[in-house]
Design a protein around this nucleic acid. Structure first.
Length: 702
DNA sequence: AGAAGATAGCTTTTT
DNA sequence: GCTATCTTCT
């Protein structure tokens, strides 16, 4: 058992695991087993060094990565890792702040976390109130974030800067009033406390005797400072990264942190992992070739023992339509040959490229999943329901209050809310508390009173019902159900019913009174983005390069490899190096097969444009020349049914449905047609002559 | 409050 | 060309 832990590791990996004391930097190439090293190191510390579970801190960037790390450690040590400090930077900070934020009054430990959308809403309100119309709310929102991440930053645009100072001050004030933090605040406030309170810093320095950082190349200045501070006392800090996969500088990731680490922790030991266990030699060859073109990159060559692969294949399509058909053709061939749909990824530089593919994937009934599509918890109806709950558990949360006070419509307009706000402010009450004594002025006060009673009625019922039934109560009492029924919006209603399952779990998983359970869930929810509930469906993955990082697929299609799209326009040399790394990330996702495609003509922003192949194509194939593989020669395009010009609806037609939007007719049986709509609607059976259906002309592209 | 019309903006965005 | 958001009108 003890030996087994190290048996699975190669020499370099072993070194990284065994060097437990002192600073260690691991340069881990793509697919070189960095998660394995991280998890084995944690397991080694726990099992061999008898380090207590809560003396280890491991941080990464995504929930997914954190969850995987936790699970794999659990598998290795056979102990429950649920309460270990293995988390994202942000949830580490949230957990820290739940304990310590009382040091920054008026904040209290049950603070809420604002997502990007809500945060922008707050800024919008302020911009409106300040009657600023020469700059957009988004500009301020971006600036607020920028200054939080780079405190020394000042805009050279003076009018903007002056307005910014006012807006940001009010923004922070409003958040503090509502006991809310935005994502950046989690890091900022954590550092504030560690900097101003040496006792607290000391406590956490002693507590976390071993610190591990994943994806170190992606850390920004704040994240680096956090790690540096916590590790400074004991110096047992272990960072894993790959400078070749640094693709988030536009978001503040600072690759200089690699040098900074070497300066701050001069006794560091460097370990290089260059052996790749993911891809074939043929794929790694082009990846290595590409990254060599970056003058400022630390030289690194990935190698693999899987030398019997096939060469990457470049397909230069005439049109974007032809490009899509090539990809679909290949997927169908390989699927017939036994590959699962989940073995394929279509990767692109910008999200809008996915549209080209969606339509035809539906037409050919190839299941697909778009990464980064609107996640469940960011749907309006879900956020509304949760806002009702937040108003019940934290009455001081003005942002949630404002979100649902007139949703559904209760004749409580912005003017009335503004007056209530002023009154609440004068009397030092929350918006909700202020309602009963709010001086009556016309019919609006009646509506407010009803709202107040409704919230309290639901709150009272909460004690006596199962949590999963709360959804029904909310839907009824808030009038939300009535609203959706009258709009015939069954989809949204169904989405809300999905929450029932979630609430059933909350009931079982969380402790305390129903209100406490909900409160606990809400605190966790804000940092849980999309599909932690990773569905194991068998579908082709459509994704950007950025979101593909960390994933791997048997077959990868890198599409729209054209100048202006990838790389995009207007880059300087430094940007171009990062762009090249984005390409590198794409190539290194592929395990066995890599296809690169470009189109001569592409339908872009309404018109066909002449495109030139991406410079990266030449760079990738500089050594090998243009590769040719017989088995992948272009095959005849699959038959596509042509639409008729009659009004009669036929297979292949594009239609528009009143409720489901645009769809494609994929089957016809008498008057019954099957129509494929965009996800999440999917395939529906409908009557061809139904009045909701309008046939679109010009169904055929290209 | 809701419909109709005008306008912008199309890179990436782990939290 | 499409879509999301803002303005203007009823």
């Amino acid at each position: 058992m003890e030996t087994g832990l190290l048996d699975e590791l190669n020499e370099a990996q072993k070194e990284a695991v065994l060097q437990t004391e002192g600073p260690v930097m691991v340069m881990a190439g793509a697919g070189s087993g960095k998660t394995k090293v991280l998890t084995h190191r944690i397991a080694y510390l726990l099992l061999e060094k008898q380090v207590p579970l809560d003396a280890i801190l491991a941080v990464t960037f995504t929930n997914k990565a954190a969850a995987e790390m936790k699970q794999r450690v659990q598998n290795l040590v056979g102990e429950n890792t649920m309460w270990m400090w293995i988390s994202t930077f942000h949830s580490f900070c949230a957990r820290f702040l739940r304990r310590e934020i009382h040091l920054l009054p008026p904040y209290t430990s049950n603070f809420g976390i604002l997502d990007e959308e809500d945060s922008l809403k707050v800024v919008k309100d302020i911009v409106k109130e300040e009657q600023i119309d020469d700059f957009k709310p988004k500009t301020f929102r971006n600036l607020i974030s920028k200054v939080k991440n780079f405190p020394q930053y000042k805009s050279s645009n003076l009018p903007l800067w002056n307005r910014y100072l006012r807006v940001s001050q009010r923004y922070q004030q409003r958040l503090a009033e509502s006991n809310l933090l935005d994502f950046d605040d989690l890091l900022v406030k954590t550092l504030d406390i560690l900097k101003k309170d040496p006792m607290v810093l000391n406590h956490y320095q002693n507590k976390f005797r071993y610190i591990l950082v994943d994806e170190f190349q992606d850390t920004n200045d704040l994240q680096y400072e956090l790690i540096q501070k916590l590790a400074n006392a004991h110096q047992n800090v272990f960072v894993v990264g790959d400078d070749c996969q640094s693709i988030y500088s536009f978001r503040g990731a600072n690759i200089k942190n690699i040098e900074l680490f070497q300066k701050d922790f001069p006794k560091f030991r460097l370990v290089k992992l260059e052996r790749n266990y993911r891809s074939t030699t043929q794929i790694l060859d082009v990846a290595n070739e590409l990254i060599r073109k970056n003058p400022n990159q630390i030289p690194k060559t990935l190698y693999s023992s899987n030398t019997h692969g096939v060469l990457p294949f470049y397909y230069a399509a005439d049109s974007s339509y032809e490009e899509v058909m090539f990809v679909i053709d290949k997927i169908r061939q390989l699927h017939l040959a036994g590959d699962s749909y989940r073995d394929f990824a279509i990767i692109y530089r910008a999200n809008y490229i996915s549209r080209n593919f969606e339509e035809l994937l539906i037409r050919y009934q190839i299941p697909y999943k778009i990464y980064g599509a609107l996640s469940f918890y960011s749907r309006k109806e879900i956020k509304d329901m949760l806002a009702y709950i937040k108003v019940m558990i934290s009455p001081e949360d003005q942002i949630s209050f404002r979100r649902i006070i007139n949703e559904p419509k209760r004749k409580i307009g912005p003017m009335l809310v503004e007056r209530l706000q002023e009154y609440a402010y004068e009397t030092h009450q929350t918006l909700l508390e202020a309602i009963p004594t709010f001086p009556k002025k016309g019919q609006g006060s009646e509506a407010l009173k009803n709202f107040y009673d409704m919230i309290h009625s639901v709150k009272a019922q909460l004690e006596n019902i199962e949590l999963k039934n709360l959804i029904d109560v909310l839907l009824e009492e808030t009038g939300y159900k009535e609203m959706l029924m009258s709009e015939e919006d069954q989809d949204r209603l169904n989405n809300i019913y999905e929450l029932k399952g979630v609430f059933k779990e909350i009931d079982e998983f969380y402790e305390g009174t129903p209100l406490e359970k909900l409160s606990g869930f809400m605190q966790d929810l804000a940092l849980r983005t999309d599909m932690d509930d990773e569905t194991e469906e068998d579908s082709v993955c459509l994704t950007t390069y950025h979101q593909a990082k960390g994933l791997e697929f048997k077959t990868v299609f890198m599409v729209a490899m054209e100048e202006g799209i990838f790389p995009s326009e207007g880059f300087n040399d430094v940007d171009m190096e990062e762009e090249r790394r984005v390409c590198y990330v794409g190539v290194t996702r592929a395990k066995e097969r890599l296809f690169l495609t470009s189109a001569n003509r592409r339908l872009l922003f309404g018109t066909y444009q002449q495109m030139a192949p991406s410079r990266f194509l030449k760079e990738l194939f500089a050594q090998k020349g243009k590769p040719k593989e017989k088995s992948w020669e272009k095959s005849a395009p699959l038959a596509v049914s042509k639409p008729s010009s009659h009004e009669e609806i036929r297979v292949g037609d594009k239609i528009t449905h009143k409720m489901f939007g645009d769809g494609l007719v994929i089957q016809k049986d008498g008057n019954v047609i099957q129509v494929a709509f965009k996800m999440p609607v999917g395939i529906k059976k409908l009557l061809a002559d139904h009045p909701s259906i309008v046939k679109k002309k010009d169904s055929q592209k290209d």
